[in-house]
């Protein structure tokens, strides 16, 4: 019983702080975020699942409010395409269906 409690506590602690730790400690990790506000040509405020932080958009000049981006070490490096995300899930589901029937 105690073990289970410890595991649950561990999981909770990790899941809550996961993106926070990721955001502040890692060099290479890219974190998805939503652009909330453009400050000027090169800076924007991004929402990391509840935590708002200023990021640089110097590497992604075409970004606009409401876009999802991947943020790496404080810089937006790539736009996330919602359409592509949905499409890829749909197409993989199809592949798996075909495999199941064979």
């Amino acid at each position: 019983m105690l073990y289970i409690l410890v595991i649950i506590r561990h999981y909770k602690a990790h899941s809550k702080s996961f993106y926070l730790t990721v955001q502040y400690r890692n060099v290479c990790l890219g974190v998805p975020a939503k652009i909330v506000k453009l400050l000027d040509k090169n800076r924007a405020i991004a929402d990391f699942g509840g935590i708002k932080k200023e990021i640089s958009t110097i590497l992604l000049p075409e970004v606009s409010t409401g876009d999802y981006v991947i943020v790496h070490a404080g810089f937006a490096i790539s736009k996330l395409s919602k359409r592509e995300a949905n499409e890829i899930i749909a197409s993989w589901k199809e592949v798996l269906e075909v495999l199941k029937s064979t």
């Binding site: 899941s15 993106y19 998805p32 699942g49 996330l80 919602k82 899930i89 589901k93 199941k100």
Partner: peptide, 28 residues
């Protein structure tokens, strides 16, 4: 874990049923 509205794209990539289906296909 993640705020629902801001990360809805990612939720599907943690879908348990889908991952289990992939795992089964991999085994095959």
């Amino acid at each position: 874990m993640l705020k629902e509205n801001s990360m809805e794209i990612l939720r599907k990539f943690r879908d348990r049923k889908l991952i289990q289906a992939v795992s089964k296909s991999i085994e095959k």
